[in-house]
Design a protein around this nucleic acid. Structure first.
Lengths: 130, 130
DNA sequence: TTAAGACTTAGAGTATGCTCTAGGTCAAGC
DNA sequence: GCTTGACCTAGAGCATACTCTAAGTCTTAA
């Protein structure tokens, strides 16, 4: 039930460097080291990495993620802060989804436009810029 | 039908510095300058800025955006490349949407979990890590 | 006519998030 | 015993995308 840093790198797609960097930044405070000083990642550590990815991908910086982890370590006195953070994050994701849909519409329009243009061999720039 | 750089900054939320930076990087090659050397942004330039934002927000780097603009300038011989780029971008957006939905699920789960925990005054860490 | 305020260029500086290097330890296999 | 390969630390270096500074111009209004 323990993984080396190399195994975790393969599993997650993160580099060994990045994993060490995350630990240095306080994002992986639960990793054990064995007698030889080697990191031993547990399944729970993999869970933390998943959460880090989730928060990062939804717009939180490493600092914000560290804040959450610090709250987690602090214990039950920070439950409300953590809940608020996830609620805030939810709002962000909803905004991101709406934005993404708008961008998708624009891209679909461009695909239509360029599909026609490729067929005709020319784009009429007086009708379409950008 | 012309805007100063300051007006465009206000309209778009980008900084004056960023607008000049974009121009320097070749992302705004159609901006005119008046006799005093001041930039005069047209509505078409605002359109380009919208497209830049769209491509940036969907994962293209400024280099990739510049590539598109260079193709645009090159003319009809690059119609296929431009179409392919938008198609590629569409695939990316679809992936991003799927990812975002997964993250949303995780966040919703956390909100449920922490809502309960706040009510009860404690989170049971043996059941939930990260 | 002079001061404010928005603009100009060239180029330096910064924040974020890696990414790599140097120099070293340790365990396994030939 | 020696090499290989994965690991270690500390710290330097890098890419991206800004962000700011210095020094100067131009327009407008008191």
């Amino acid at each position: 039930m323990g993984y080396t840093i190399g195994q975790v790198a393969k599993k997650t797609g993160l580099s060994v460097h990045t994993l060490r960097y995350y630990e240095k930044e306080g994002l992986l405070p639960f990793i054990k080291k064995n007698s030889a000083g080697l990191r031993v990642f547990s399944d729970s550590d993999l869970g933390w990495l998943e959460l880090i990815e989730c928060l990062k991908a939804t717009g939180l910086h490493l600092k914000g993620i560290k804040q959450y982890i610090d709250w987690y370590i602090e214990g039950d006195s920070t439950l409300q802060q953590r809940l608020d953070m996830f609620k805030q994050q939810k709002i962000r994701v909803e905004q991101q989804m709406a934005e993404l849909q708008k961008h998708m519409n624009k891209i679909n329009y461009k695909i239509e436009l360029y599909t026609k243009a490729v067929k005709e061999g020319t784009l009429h720039p007086e009708k379409e810029t950008a």
